[in-house]
Design a protein around this nucleic acid. Structure first.
Lengths: 304, 304
DNA sequence: TTGTAAGCGTTATCAA
DNA sequence: TTGATAACGCTTACAA
């Protein structure tokens, strides 16, 4: 384009206060400039982080964020998605866990020819582009942190089996214990459900053991809070008598006293990265691994 | 339309698997079937509830939810809104606090001819349709609940001045105290900032008074949690030695021990109602008042 | 490099 | 009640 023509156009734009019409562009160009965020996660903190990241990336590329809550437990999940998709054609979809692991939903998206990127998928890694974090390594490093504080008997509280993160975090814990040559008795690994209440139950079992652990690593923050509540009730000072570690670094981690040592996941970045993969003209491909961060706060301290 | 023609059309729809094209409808009908949720609230719980309600109402009427986070503190708030609005024309906008109180943003929306409904606006009630809750009455009833438990000296922790709810909740507290003929010493009313940390500070001041209160009513849950943390540290049993009440009934209210007595706001309903006002063909008008709920849990008990 | 014209799939209008 | 036709404001392809 010749520079003077460009200038003339720019001037006309200014003069007429021209704004491209979104609907017309969408119709003629057969793209909507809309990115769908399909989520199904009970945690508002997680979802909020997701949205912040996705929105940031959308603005970089002139897209907008369309929100769709999907009930992935429901048998109608796929047909719900289908209905939403038929009314508004989005340019791409971000799928967060656990919807991202529902095969029927993926099948539908494939069939409709809608591009999608999965966030922390449980498996089937070749099926679509995805963004994830190394849950195993994070749990490994948290466990090592506790070991370095002198803890030898460490209790672990896992998550629900259907969550992809559950197995990875337990693996990281077990690997770190093995690497340090520390035995892990069966009763030191408790199955939780990512809820405060389940954390309470597991903590009660762990702390009433004949030889209770000196540290408990709960594989999410809600459960870690449950552990702290039990410690409080049993008059066990944290961290002097019991160290407590969580996972997720949710906002509540800083709203308890002492503040919770946890793992910060790059949730917003993951969503931003997924969005960028979607809007990139050459299309998305492969997987992308993002870094976590070990956040050490007051709830973990030297073993007695 | 003649019934047999209708049937023929329905058949053709089925046969051709016809789906109306969103972009074409938007272009020809000059409406987008998109509702914008413009929010600017630090609390993920609040925002999540907003979204759930708005999404529910959108689905009822075949609309979709477009998310826009606005930084209402920024001087560029209005021009940011303008830019977002120019690229995608939404059919209506839901404005949550505190964006809903930024005059430049309202001016802009008026100028652009975009319909909007405000959620819990601070004032200027004639300016646009709105949905709200009676914060004053809620604080009044919470205070009365404490009085009925026998509390006479009740501490109150307020919010930041720029929040519309702050004045209303304090008013409710003071009215209830006056109605019961109880004097309120100046030092029993502390200015908080809706944050955990500010709750801690205010609680420390209240509890180190020569004659400390037997109950503290914090005007949101985060601050109430701060109060509980201080009580814990001072070895004041809740609720035996100190009753604590919050406001908002955020999820954390059930994740502490004892669980927090609080006020449940109909946030999702408010957003749903606002959405319905926007999509209603005859247009929105006036204000709509929704009910709150007093949720009594373990953190409040009889005065010693 | 620039100008022209034909869709895109609806809504809205008007005539039949 | 029905059918035909002109916008809506862009993108894209092709001609100048």
């Amino acid at each position: 384009v010749r520079p003077d023509t460009q200038a003339r156009v720019a001037q006309a734009v200014k003069l007429l206060n021209y704004r491209p019409n979104f609907a017309a562009r969408a119709l003629a160009g057969s793209r909507s400039y809309l990115i769908g965020l399909y989520y199904d996660n009970p945690s508002p903190d997680y979802v909020a982080a997701l949205q912040v990241g996705a929105m940031r990336a959308c603005r970089e590329s002139g897209h907008h964020l369309l929100l769709e809550q999907i009930d992935s437990e429901s048998p109608r999940a796929a047909s719900d998605v289908a209905r939403r998709l038929h009314t508004v054609r989005v340019d791409g979809v971000i799928l967060s866990p656990p919807v991202c692991d529902r095969a029927e939903v993926l099948d539908l998206l494939d069939r409709e020819g809608v591009a999608y990127v999965r966030l922390a998928p449980a498996g089937d890694v070749a099926r679509s582009p995805f963004v994830h974090m190394d849950d195993r390594q994070a749990a490994f490093e948290m466990t090592r942190h506790l070991q370095q504080l002198g803890h030898r008997r460490i209790g672990f509280i896992g998550g629900p089996v259907r969550h992809s993160a559950t197995a990875l975090r337990r693996r990281g814990f077990l690997d770190a214990m093995a690497a340090a040559g520390l035995p892990v008795e069966r009763e030191l690994v408790q199955p939780g459900a990512f809820s405060f209440r389940s954390g309470v139950g597991c903590a009660e079992r762990l702390l009433s053991l004949p030889r209770p652990p000196t540290a408990i690593f709960a594989s999410n923050d809600d459960m870690a809070l449950g552990v702290m509540a039990v410690a409080n009730r049993m008059r066990l000072a944290v961290p002097q008598a019991l160290s407590v570690a969580g996972f997720d670094d949710s906002p509540i981690a800083q709203v308890v006293w002492p503040q919770l040592t946890s793992i910060r996941q790059p949730v917003a970045q993951m969503a931003a990265e997924a969005t960028r993969m979607l809007v990139r003209p050459d299309g998305a491909a492969g997987g992308r691994l993002l870094d976590f961060q070990l956040i050490i706060r007051g709830s973990t301290g030297p073993a007695a």
